[in-house]
Amino acid sequence: MNPPRPALARLNWYWPIQLVGWHVVILANLKFEHDAIPRSYVATCWLFGISAMLLSDGWHRVLKRRPQWIAPRPSWGHVVPGLLLLTVMQTAAATLAFAIFQPFGLMRDLTWLPGALLFWFTLFLLWTVFYMAVISLRRANQFEAEAMRLEIHAKDAELRALQAQVNPHFYFNSLNSVRALIYEDHDAAAQLIDQLASLMRYTLQSGQAETVPLAQELEAVNAYLTIEKIRFEERIRVSLHIEPGLELVRIPPMSLQTLVENAVKYGVEQSPNGSDIRISARRHGNMIAIEIANVGTIVPFSNSTRIGLHNARKRLQLSLGVQASLDLSEHSGWVKATLTLPEAA
């Protein structure tokens, strides 16, 4: 589920920066001698450039093996001796290069030595500081990504748990209906228990799958509506229209059921005359729209409704991507909840 990293981040920037960086040093040294540059001097600069690059690469390997020298806090007690050693080695290499090619003849004194040591020390120090900055930036990014991943994971678990929650108001009312029916109509009572059992099983298992086929969710919705028909009798009227071929469209479990429950709660339960509950699934281009409609008006949202809607949207997008959406609208006396999903899933 991790988003692909951008191409720039995937590229290994280490060697390009090494090459460019040390060439800048070489070129700067060459430019220092602006008149005619003897070939031997170019060769000298190249040689000590290469040695500096190799030394810094060795240093890179050391630092990689001892990340505690860099993070969380630079440990200068380890780094500075390392830098001094590098400086000595590089100065020796540079001296050797001068000795081999002798661009300015033989060196007769050591007056150049402090300047050279300071020069190389400064360069390696800059190299290390730059490296530290890159590392700590990368760590910060990783921390952020990790924190985000954990947060999403926790949210997802929480949403699943919420969804699998049995609606207690519904279940106790259903149990009350069952008890009344036992005395009134044995067969109807037995049927009601069957429907309750299958709905409860579906609800409890809903946390296990990321998505289910629409047909499977509709089975649970049917069980639910059958139970509510026993409770509300003629106050609830159901119509179902699923366009052929959409039975296998995958949706998050309980996403449709929750919306139907809401339609019954606000359409049927709140009105003495009840309401039609219209459920439909249609193709619109390469999107699929599943609609649940009930008679009524959108009540000013209570906190629980807002949170419920927000959670349902989040759950939908976690499972099906950002193209999936959930909208609530009111039109000429009907409240309509619309789930929109991308076809290919």
């Binding site: 009350n176 009344a180 009798e233």
Partner: peptide, 12 residues
């Protein structure tokens, strides 16, 4: 009670 069955049960 708005539900007939609930009233029937209470009556019983």
């Amino acid at each position: 009670d708005d539900e007939r069955l609930a009233r029937a049960e209470l009556r019983r």
